[in-house]
Amino acid sequence: MLVHADQRYITALLENDQQLIGDIYRRFSPTIRSHIMNHRGTADDAADIFQESLIDIYNQAKHNGLRLSCPFEPFLLLVCKRKWLNELKKRGHSPVTKLSDDLSEWGEDSFAAAEIVAREEDRARVFLEQFRRLSEKCREILRLSLSGDQQEKIAVQLGVTYGYLRKKKSECMATLLSYIQAQKI
């Protein structure tokens, strides 16, 4: 895949390059702000959506190696629009725009890239929300077990046997899987 020159904006997010991130705001925030304020939102809503969309893009770049094959502007706009549509649905409003219209307007590459970010980040959000529903003990066991440290060392740290740690970890994960499946994602 040919990487678009606008990949520099993704790199800027990864490296917290304040100058280039300032450029993202200067160039692209007026469009997003205008879109959201024309679709039942406030300036505060626009700020939240813009910020959270950039964080989602950062997460996809950091954890899933996001590579842009399209310009950054339509991609960012579509990520923000999708996020705002979800927010409107949460607030009980009917969507006033259709994502399918965006496919023809902005092109397949931008649409597909934005869809991946939205879908992956929605799933990660559900996983983490359901993780927070677990008991404190379960969360501690999973947090430590998934830290990459040796399991034997973690068992000592928690004051339990290795066998108990393995059993409890499986139980906690199974509970978490049940919570997630109940969300029907």
């Binding site: 997460n59 990660a124 996983f127 983490l128 993780f131 830290s147």
Partner: peptide, 11 residues
Amino acid sequence: ELRRTLEQRLP
């Protein structure tokens, strides 16, 4: 997928 996500995002 869940395990990978938690490994990435809990720290």
